[in-house]
């Protein structure tokens, strides 16, 4: 298991790995099969820990030698002391939590920095889908139908930035990726990001 070949690394994971300083303490909330943890441990010398809700995911991670506990963002963050980690990562998960605002507050408590990657519901394909088909967007990137999607709290990038203000944190860095995984230049105006960004990675600080 531990030496199983890795599939191509997810683009947002690559971006997150770039944002993390060497030899940091990192907690990945919703770490899945541990791809990001592995990347951070091997490339960044990170002390990388994870939380994952699915037993299969946890077993896979532990069998790879990663430190992962079975649990979720609602139940298992309270035990960690303030500032326990240099970075707390929530990749492609915030929109699937019951109370994104509360989760953000908890993440900011236990991490010096919080890294959030989210899909952008305001991406132009999604807008066209809704406008011309009159149906909730189903794309390669967001393949679920409305009735079985785990993503119960979708937002656009601008919506997310509003939330960061609401919970009182600052955006240290944002990397916005278009539909083919290219970075949209940092100088671009917000409306452009919000239209052409399919997903984004935010580095936040309280």
């Amino acid at each position: 298991m531990s030496d199983a070949p890795m599939t191509e690394i997810r683009i947002d994971h690559k971006v997150i790995a770039e944002l993390v300083e060497l030899n940091s303490r990192v907690l990945d909330v919703g770490c899945g099969d541990g791809e990001l943890l592995q990347l951070l441990a091997t490339q960044k010398g990170a002390d990388a820990r994870g939380i994952e809700i699915s037993q299969i995911g946890v077993n896979f991670c532990v069998a790879r030698g990663l430190s992962v506990i079975q649990g979720d963002a609602n139940e298992d963050l309270a035990a960690y002391p303030d500032g326990a980690f240099d970075y707390v990562v929530l990749s492609q998960t915030l929109q699937a939590t019951w109370d994104p605002k509360e989760v953000m507050t908890r993440l900011l408590r236990i991490g010096e920095h919080v890294i959030v990657s989210i899909p952008n519901f305001g991406y132009w394909q999604n807008r066209l889908h809704l406008m011309f088909k009159g149906r909730m967007p189903v794309t390669d990137y967001l393949p679920h139908s409305w009735y079985n999607t785990p993503n119960i709290h979708f937002c656009t990038l601008r919506d997310f930035v509003d939330l960061t203000k609401e919970v009182g944190c600052t955006v240290d860095k944002a990397v916005v990726l278009n539909g083919i995984g290219q970075r949209i230049p940092i100088q671009a105006p917000w409306w452009l990001w919000n239209l052409f960004g399919e997903q984004a990675v935010f580095l936040l600080k309280e």
Binding site: V58, I69, G71, D76, A78, A79, Y80, P81
Partner: peptide, 21 residues
């Protein structure tokens, strides 16, 4: 077991936890 895991988290320990089905 969760009580132990949470205590270990609070102590900053390196811990893996799984519930076997």
């Amino acid at each position: 077991s969760r009580v132990v895991v949470h205590a270990l988290n609070a102590a900053g320990a390196n811990v893996s936890f799984v519930e076997i089905d």
